[in-house]
């Protein structure tokens, strides 16, 4: 049964608001002085994790569509991709302003010298490339190459996790959780497993028959 048009519109608005909620929450914490003595770093680190939440959400759409065949998941793909880019740009902004104090000469030297920053910047370049080609015109113009270009998202996932790993200093627990989610999303794309996903749809729909 197709979802009514207005429900899909509401769904897209709901996703938009949901993606804004973390930013609003962190900003409010800073505004009420609940973000600790280093609010810039608080924003930097939280938004950094937010990038991965957005990226994971984007990458979960294909498996979810396969599982449910619901059109709604496809409709928010571009939006979530652009949210990932937005979070990444905000992350860089926080780093440049709150950590480097807008000392642009240092921004240049740090980008070249620190491996984790090089990796992060490469991931950002990938996100920008996908962001600027996310409109219909680019899709038409690039044709088949568009799909190839947007496979960069897998590289971005790897680079993002590597960037995160290289920031970790003493405990890998949190990073391991993120890496596990990233790995799961990639495993769901392996052809033998991806082929199984529609079958699960049958199971979900007709649990009675499945148990026979």
């Amino acid at each position: 049964m197709p979802t009514p048009r207005y429900t899909l519109t509401l769904w897209r608005i709901a996703v938009f608001i949901a993606a804004l909620v973390p930013l609003a929450w962190w900003s409010s914490q800073v505004a009420i002085n609940a973000a600790g003595p280093e609010p810039g770093r608080y924003l930097l680190l939280n938004i950094g994790q937010g990038i991965l939440w957005m990226l994971f959400s984007t990458l979960s759409l294909t498996p979810l569509t396969k599982l449910t065949r619901w059109k709604g998941f496809t409709l928010i793909r571009r939006q979530l991709g652009l949210w990932t880019l937005t979070y990444a740009l905000l992350h860089l902004f926080c780093y440049a302003v709150f950590i480097l104090g807008l000392d642009l000469s240092r921004l240049g030297s740090e980008i070249v010298r620190r491996p984790y920053i090089i990796v992060g910047m490469l991931a950002l370049v990938g996100l920008i490339a996908m962001g600027v080609t996310s409109n219909k015109g680019s899709m038409r113009k690039l044709g088949k190459r568009w799909k190839t270009l947007h496979k960069v998202v897998y590289l971005v996932l790897g680079l993002g996790l590597l960037h995160f790993l290289w920031v970790v200093r003493a405990d890998l627990e949190q990073w391991s959780l993120y890496a596990a989610v990233g790995a799961l999303l990639m495993i769901l794309r392996l052809p033998p497993i991806a082929r199984q996903l529609p079958k699960f749809r049958q199971l979900i729909k007709r649990p009675g028959r499945a148990s026979v």
């Binding site: 003595p37 280093e38 609010p39 810039g40 709150f98 950590i99 104090g101």
Partner: peptide, 11 residues
């Protein structure tokens, strides 16, 4: 170094 506490407007 960042001398703490700092703020968004003054790192």
């Amino acid at each position: 170094e960042r001398r703490l506490p700092n703020s968004l407007f003054n790192p």
